[in-house]
């Protein structure tokens, strides 16, 4: 099981038969208290970099872009009633959606955990 990151602070965690997408701890801290998440539709297909979700705090909003191409296989319904999960556990219960990857090789262009932590550190 490994996790990859984009420069826009989305993460994608690879599980046995699917991948889980959400935003990083750094991104949730930047946004502040999350109040609303607009999730993609179940079954929706998209390409890498397509806008697939929106996450909003009171004074900020951020588009979430697909870290890889594929199709939505599940969405995190719990975020509708409890958007704060994104703050409490961005890489746990605060996940956005699950997807099937159309091509695993595209992960190579993303950052791994160590590279991402270095990237975040460089942002100051």
């Amino acid at each position: 099981m490994s996790t990859y990151y984009t420069k826009d602070h989305e993460y994608i965690r690879i599980e046995a038969d699917h991948a889980i997408v959400g935003i990083s701890d750094y991104a949730q801290a930047q946004l502040g208290d999350v109040v609303f998440v607009e999730l993609p539709a179940l079954g929706q297909s998209f390409g890498t970099g397509d806008q697939v979700a929106v996450v909003e705090s009171v004074k900020a909003a951020s588009e979430v872009y697909a870290p890889a191409s594929g199709q939505v296989s599940a969405i995190n319904d719990a975020l509708e009633a409890s958007p704060g999960l994104v703050n409490e556990a961005p890489q746990g219960a605060g996940w956005f959606f699950k997807m099937t990857l159309s091509d695993k090789s595209q992960l190579a262009s993303l950052m791994d955990e160590a590279a991402y932590q270095a990237f975040v550190a460089s942002l100051g």
Binding site: A27, D33, S57, K59, A60
Partner: peptide, 9 residues
Amino acid sequence: SSAQGRPTA
């Protein structure tokens, strides 16, 4: 968009 929030609680 502005992705920079601030404390609102």
